[in-house]
């Protein structure tokens, strides 16, 4: 092995002799360093870069309270609580959150939650008004439907503390929403969560035919463009 390395470096010297001498490295130095090669350090990637084909799937959906990990199985009251699956019988399903489509359940009259604490005959004050929000990015624009929201909430829940009821007055972006601001006050906590499966629930209005992504300022100012 060593002999082979020396032979190869000698051959390299013969071929590129002038180049070596131009660098000011003598032939003896080169052969000496080739004879005692530095130990090869293999990058340790095993820990960090384990090939992970799929993220872990949720194995138990709608687990009963004693097995859900936040209720104490040693508490006798835990066993009195209703398992969610029992309550979800017959409700329309969804692929995320509680795996129940709560809005659809109300629309289909499968659920009739009270609008008043005591009076079960009181009806929700529903307002049917869609708000279109144009999105800078290339994802579809957002249509905010008041109807589905007013089925559940009162105006004062959102206005004016979270959303100023005025066009153009609200700065909304996904990073804020993911951190629990604006829409994220509820979405991502109780109402449907923000996953790749749910993007199109809000981003539902396709961009106009002639829409092209706006060029960033850095691109417009680029002298070599």
């Amino acid at each position: 092995m060593k002999n082979k390395i020396i032979l190869t470096s000698a051959l390299a010297l013969v071929i590129s002799g002038p180049a070596f001498s131009a660098d000011g490295v003598s032939a003896e130095e080169v052969t000496a360093s080739a004879a005692t090669p530095e130990p090869v350090v293999v990058a340790q990637v095993a820990g960090a870069n384990v090939f992970n084909r799929n993220l872990k799937k949720v194995k138990v959906k709608n687990a009963p309270p004693p097995e859900d990990g936040i209720h104490d199985p040693e508490n006798e009251g835990t066993y009195v609580l209703q398992p969610p699956l029992e309550a979800y019988q017959g409700l329309p399903t969804s692929p995320y959150g509680n795996y129940v489509d709560w809005v659809k359940a109300i629309d289909e009259k499968k659920l009739q939650p009270r609008w008043d604490r005591i009076d079960s005959s009181e009806e929700a004050f529903v307002m049917d008004l869609d708000v279109l929000r144009e999105v800078k990015a290339s994802v579809p624009d957002v249509i905010f439907p008041h109807r589905q929201h007013t089925e559940w909430l009162a105006c004062s829940n959102c206005h004016p503390a979270i959303f100023i009821p005025q066009k153009g007055a609200n700065q909304i972006n996904m990073s804020g929403i993911l951190l629990g601001q604006k829409c994220g006050v509820c979405h991502g906590k109780v109402s449907f969560p923000i996953t790749t499966k749910s993007c199109k629930k809000c981003h539902s209005q396709p961009k106009p035919e002639d829409w092209t992504p706006p060029l960033s300022e850095a691109t417009l100012k680029n002298p070599w463009r």
Binding site: L81, Q82, P84, A87, R114, R117, A124, W152, L153, N157
Partner: peptide, 17 residues
Amino acid sequence: PHWFHRIRFRCKVCHAD
């Protein structure tokens, strides 16, 4: 449990009233 309560009451009852 939010799920248990929203079957019976709308958000408005607790969060507004």
